[in-house]
Design a protein around this nucleic acid. Structure first.
Lengths: 204, 204, 204, 204
DNA sequence: AATGAATGAGCATTCATTCAT
DNA sequence: TATGAATGAATGCTCATTCAT
């Protein structure tokens, strides 16, 4: 049994902690000032470290943005898979995905801003993100739709890839509207609203 | 018969022409290099004018982006209203809006890139756009949905504003996917795909 | 006959003037603070222009150093050739080259410092300079020695390329010692001292 | 019989070894990347130690360069004096000095690069080096020339200090050319070539 | 003695904008 | 109107050096 006294002695723990702290600071700063307007010095200050220290944990400013996406997406996908595997019905699984999507981003407004706004500021990013975790996420949605079609829960005259994009697009718009909205309402409940139309459109 | 020699004599026409030319150049440049990576000098070069001349027609670089949006949005909305007013059924009107949305952006890839990517690079822009033409566009969609509900064509248990966002989000996602896609397919036909699900979900 | 009233209208003249002024400023600054310690801003300030203006005339800081060398070397070689062609005897020509070498650098201490010190701070520069004007200069010396050998003025048992390097090395050392020396003496007379030994060694 | 186990026990020996190892690493790194482009971390890595350890043996980066010069110069001068004292004729002594100069640097290309290129990158260094070992070295050459003049081996109408610089300059140029040359030839034989001219010029 | 994580000063370069012509 | 030379503010990143362990 490892001695808790040596807590600081585990370099991995400490290093990961600092990395995470910088990332949290970056999310906050990027969300408030925008990626291009944010200075690396702002992020460092928000994280309570020296400017140069950022570069011990991240290759450059762009790497910060990438890492925010990678980390959040990986977490989200892992969490999503875990939640979903225990749900039998594809239709119910899809509904749960929608809920998780809005719960996750609804729980962290800064992260949502980075996802909805900052990550879309360039085709370069967009392309890379499409290629990366995003397409994996869309893949999970599509697979669920296919299963629903095979199970007879969803109509079979619709291409899963298109149905998937439609759901994603609808949810995405909900999030974007939420972060731009002045009056603050709860985001997660919107999942039900979306599914009210979507599942009806998919069933018949 | 108007003398072609005097063509330049109409200052307004000439001025508007040059303004439009600069805007076209800006759309091209922004779409290819991204707004932040584009230099005002690039736009000037693409328009075949001197750098300083840009400032005779636009307040600054940001004004170029704004003007691209304003102009395209105004055109789109005007065109949309004209097309729609002759269509009796709200359901058919909504379908026509979806078609127009994808036709318009599908016809000008550069403009689509600016709309889907460059205009979203900052919360500042996003907020302003929401406040501007975008909410007017969403308003048209919502109004049509409301009319459809009153006419009994659409189910009444759904809030028009949410149904509107869902449609917009789905269409928006179609456009984004299209511009990021390597294989070039036709965008307008996707309107049918979207409506196949959406109208079913709205009807019942 | 061009009107002198439009003096400023000749952009080439004006542009070349400013380029030369920046180069002069760079020589001064580099000589006093050293190339690596000099800031581009220092050069700009010394030239009485804004920092950014330097980049309208030179690619970057390194280009300043290159240009100093290129320009001075081209001037020197051209001047040298002109002076030499009217001298019949190869031995006298060689003597004149030695004199010119020390006259040129002895007339501009800052330029001499840049040549003797700053230009040698990296193998990269050294290699490039060797490949460039420097080898042309050495070529002129060697050719003169060869002609002297053919004319029977110089002994024939010595490789011209080596004899050339020896002369160049001796002169170069005179210049280096001169710029490092605190007590200021005249550099040009050293040419005679060098030739007193060198020509004796070459003759016999 | 000294126990090899206790080898590390002699702190002076061990300490000097490490100092020497760092210096060797610095010579290699500086020669390949140039002094200004080399990082202290590069030197530490080449020496197989931690970055901070360099500062236990040297004051700072500049001290590394200084120490390379001091150490090599001291070695060279000591070795030179020893070799020379047993040679009777000043002319032969001078010849031996020239040979040693090229043998020493010709045996360690990296050291030669540092001496010919990196040590000359700033007037500050140059001045300090002049004041230090370099002038001592030149002093030995001059003294030998004086002795040659008194012995009637060398002509008396030449200032020893100038004759010394000429010889040094010629040898120096040989070394510089050698390190910049792509085709690798032997440097020491060039001593003979130099002396073929020089001694003839000095004798008469 | 040795480590290496953290520091933070320092700087070349870009580019939106201006304005004299 | 149009030009384009000149401006100068603004910033990401490096790396020599320190110091707690």
């Amino acid at each position: 049994m490892p001695s808790p006294i040596k807590e600081k002695a585990d370099p991995r723990r400490s290093s990961e902690d600092k990395r995470a702290a910088i990332l949290r600071a970056a999310i906050k700063v990027f969300a408030r000032k925008g990626y291009f307007s944010s200075k690396v010095a702002d992020v460092a200050a928000a994280a309570g470290i020296a400017d140069g220290t950022v570069y011990l944990y991240f290759k450059n400013k762009e790497d910060l943005l990438h890492s925010i996406f990678d980390r959040a997406m990986a977490e989200f996908i892992e969490e999503g898979r875990r939640e979903i595997e225990s749900i039998a019905s594809p239709a119910a699984r899809l509904r749960r995905i929608a809920e998780l999507h809005l719960e996750k981003l609804g729980a962290d407004r800064d992260l949502a801003v980075v996802f909805q706004v900052e990550l879309r500021g360039s085709t370069k990013f967009m392309r890379e993100f499409s290629a990366a975790g995003f397409s994996e996420y869309l893949g999970i949605i599509c697979k669920t739709i296919e299963e629903g079609q095979r199970a007879g829960e969803f109509r079979g005259d619709i291409k899963p890839i298109i149905a998937g994009k439609i759901l994603y697009g609808a949810l995405d718009e909900m999030v974007t509207n939420w972060i731009l909205s002045k009056n603050d309402y709860q985001l997660p409940p919107m999942a039900g609203e979306v599914m009210k139309i979507y599942s009806e459109g998919m069933t018949k």
